[in-house]
Design a protein around this nucleic acid. Sequence first.
DNA 1: CCGCCGCCTTGACACAGATCAAACTGGTTG
DNA 2: CAACCAGTTTGATCTGTGTCAAGGCGGCGG
Lengths: 251, 251
Amino acid sequence: MSMARARPLVLDPNRRDDPCAHCGARAYSVCSAIDSKDLDRLAALSTQIVVDPGRSFIEEGDAAEHFFNVTSGTAKLFKLLPDGRRQITGFASTGHFLGLAVSTAYSFSAEALEPMRICRFSRPKLKLMLDDFPAMEKRLLEVASNELVAAQEQMLLLGRKTARERLASFLIARADMPSHCLGHQPGHAETVLLPMTRNDIADYLGLTIETVSRTLTKLRSEGLIEIPSASTVVIKRHAALEAIASGSGGH
Amino acid sequence: MSMARARPLVLDPNRRDDPCAHCGARAYSVCSAIDSKDLDRLAALSTQIVVDPGRSFIEEGDAAEHFFNVTSGTAKLFKLLPDGRRQITGFASTGHFLGLAVSTAYSFSAEALEPMRICRFSRPKLKLMLDDFPAMEKRLLEVASNELVAAQEQMLLLGRKTARERLASFLIARADMPSHCLGHQPGHAETVLLPMTRNDIADYLGLTIETVSRTLTKLRSEGLIEIPSASTVVIKRHAALEAIASGSGGH
DNA sequence: CCGCCGCCTTGACACAGATCAAACTGGTTG
DNA sequence: CAACCAGTTTGATCTGTGTCAAGGCGGCGG
């Protein structure tokens, strides 16, 4: 490839050189708090890893030795009960920071849905570095606060919304997702891509796969959405769907 | 009172002097990150407020102008749907820090269950002060991370546990609560006090009041708990209850 | 001390969503 | 291109929890 010849150093596999400079997630991630001139110090702490779909890279209960920063792709984060019941607590895509759990063990598992690139940091080393970069600590607090708000919203969904409202909320949330999470323009996307299976959606929304399927079929038959393929939903009536999602949609 | 004469300055109502020094929550709260010598600066930013039971002090959607630190008493934190369905996302008692929401508006409401004393800070002023005290920022991140873990556990409960498991989890969590949340010795308390109504428990666990009542009655009839009064539960078989809570309790 | 009122418990029944079962679909392999 | 397979859809039935309704209990004020 001609690009290989134009920038040989970058592609040289023996040189782990300046990964941040070419990181697509940098602008959206916690790293944005770090000055360009200090990036090499951050880069020195990081290891780039690749995770294939279906592969886990965090196992609930394991010693929490690393922080992770998703560079591309999507993962599902989940907790299990001993009999196999599963709750997906979120999906992590480009820019997402993982591993905030305070204790010494991870409190959830993470598995790739799509091919992923992840930037991995030694936990103790990054913690030390945080002392020198309060701006990054500030950014982490911001991120954690945002996740907390999202978690509370999800509790409302799981505790009090109907299946119909849960699906509507899920689709609206996906459609309103920041553009870098999947490369489309900002604002509502009317086409929503679902990299996860129906089973994952069910485990995220506290439902069964059959209820998810039936409810989507119903929304389609009412003209609110179209489903050109199992992993693609087109939102036809965004406002109506939003009304359902918020709990003021009737039925 | 003789104490009044011994320390007249403290009790002088016109002197808002050094509230932190006598704050019972200090050791457990984010303030523990602040050196004694800097406490006066923190105290200068704070206003002590008292909230009667049933009174709200945070209203979802209102401009987020303050941070709060619970000094004594307990509040319920909740979100509402337009038709009145309610999800309680947590209970905040002594030492709890509130108001982390990033956006400009609160994402939940808070209402006192018991008489409360709260330490209130101006949001922008405290944020400025954080720049000078990275230790406090670190502490806040710790707190937020802990809450995130708790929120994920609650999602598992709301999405995947049965009514029986939810009640068991709730009672176990209350029994294992840090001692400063209600003044008993550390470790399991076998006597659990419930300052909230059955309705609040129901809205916290994503159930109805009737199901909460019936399920508690059932646990009692099985000899796992006793219910000397509506607001007191005595755990008779902690291990068995824990097994149910974790999802490996049979039935 | 009595009566009221809010909260809690208990019972009978209904229903949203779970479970069990079977057929369909689209992509992949030999 | 046929057979397969994982994931999805659809159908029939069941059930845990919700809903509606009727007491019971305990604390507070008069």
